[in-house]
Simulated scan of single mutants.
Amino acid sequence: MSSRTAAETGFDAVDTRKVGAFLALAFGISWTSAAALYVAGVELQTIAGTVLVVALFMWTPAIAAILVQYRAGGSIRDGCGLRLGRPRWLAVGWLAPLALVAATIGVGALLPGVSITTDYAAFLLDLGLPQAQVEEAIAQLEAFPGPPALLFAVQGLGAGLTINALAALGEELGWRGLLLEELSPLGFWKVSGLTGAVWGLWHAPIILQGHNFPEAPIVGVFVMTAATVAVSPVYTYLTVRAESVLAAAFFHGSFNGLGALSVVYLAGAGNLVTAPVGIAGIGAALLATGACVAHDRVIAAEAVTGGEPLRPFL
């Protein structure tokens, strides 16, 4: 994680043509795919819609990164951080969403009108499941020898290390892979802010189609972007510390697997407030960013959040 020389810092050191080509491809392919889903009348809240979003939308940043890196004659492994890196930090990336989601529930419970609930049946009914399936699911939860939250956590972490990680890698190979490497001369905070803003706006077409915030899709675009900006420093920090994009993929995968727990356990408000990418999630992300900064300044042997250029994939 050594620094580049002072002469190489700032926007002048960024290959803007390469970054522009990557963003044009990532947005062009994904937004075209989202338009196709809309024209085809695909409901994104269904299982089929979710599968199509993963296949046609989530993997477009990776496809764009691979194409741009190939055209530039660079190594995918070196230019996108597709390497083992530091296993200890990969484990941190995998497990950290447990704390982030717990913090989301804690922050949410402090918001006006929001309370903690364990009414699993109400949540399942809100998802549109028929009464018979809800009763079957509740019976399975009651038969579990431990608390349901433990079962949810094990399932979420299992998915975060496997299928969810594979889906998340489609995004992360672009955002915390190629884009992080190319923007690294700007330093930790500028990289995180720009990546978070790009990442949030990239979601706009599927948010407008009801993904995450079906009750308020237009406002949802702004809330989603605020959430990605807030949590982006955490992704950057884990990736730089791990020296591998896999840390971001595991974090993203586990977060996707566990994030719905905030909606399960918080009642009294809609997704704009209680979702892991809602108001509660934004508050938790700011706390997580603070924890990263505290570790960087107090515990780590070498600081990376001071604004100096980054070298994420040594």
Results as ranks from 00 to 15, higher is better:
73 G>Y: 10
74 G>Q: 13
75 S>E: 04
75 S>G: 12
76 I>L: 15
81 G>A: 11
81 G>P: 11
81 G>Y: 12
82 L>I: 14
82 L>G: 09
83 R>W: 01
83 R>G: 04
84 L>R: 12
86 R>I: 13
86 R>D: 08
87 P>K: 05
90 L>K: 05
92 V>R: 01
93 G>I: 10
93 G>A: 03
96 A>N: 08
97 P>C: 11
97 P>S: 09
97 P>R: 09
98 L>F: 03
98 L>H: 04
99 A>W: 11
99 A>H: 01
99 A>Q: 01
102 A>D: 05
106 G>R: 05
108 G>K: 07
111 L>S: 06
111 L>I: 10
113 G>E: 03
115 S>K: 12
116 I>W: 11
117 T>E: 09
119 D>W: 10
120 Y>Q: 07
120 Y>T: 12
120 Y>C: 08
120 Y>E: 12
121 A>W: 14
122 A>T: 14
122 A>I: 05
124 L>R: 07
124 L>F: 10
125 L>H: 15
127 L>I: 08
127 L>Y: 06
129 L>R: 06
130 P>D: 15
130 P>Q: 10
130 P>T: 09
131 Q>V: 13
133 Q>D: 15
140 Q>I: 09
141 L>F: 00
143 A>Y: 02
146 G>L: 14
148 P>G: 00
150 L>T: 11
151 L>M: 15
151 L>T: 07
152 F>P: 00
153 A>E: 00
153 A>W: 02
155 Q>F: 12
157 L>D: 01
157 L>G: 00
158 G>R: 08
158 G>C: 07
159 A>N: 12
161 L>S: 00
162 T>V: 14
163 I>M: 10
163 I>T: 10
164 N>W: 13
166 L>F: 05
167 A>N: 14
170 G>L: 05
172 E>C: 01
175 W>Y: 13
176 R>G: 05
177 G>Y: 08
178 L>A: 14
178 L>V: 13
182 E>L: 12
182 E>K: 15
182 E>A: 12
183 L>D: 04
183 L>W: 11
183 L>E: 04
184 S>K: 04
185 P>A: 11
186 L>D: 10
186 L>M: 10
188 F>A: 01
193 G>E: 06
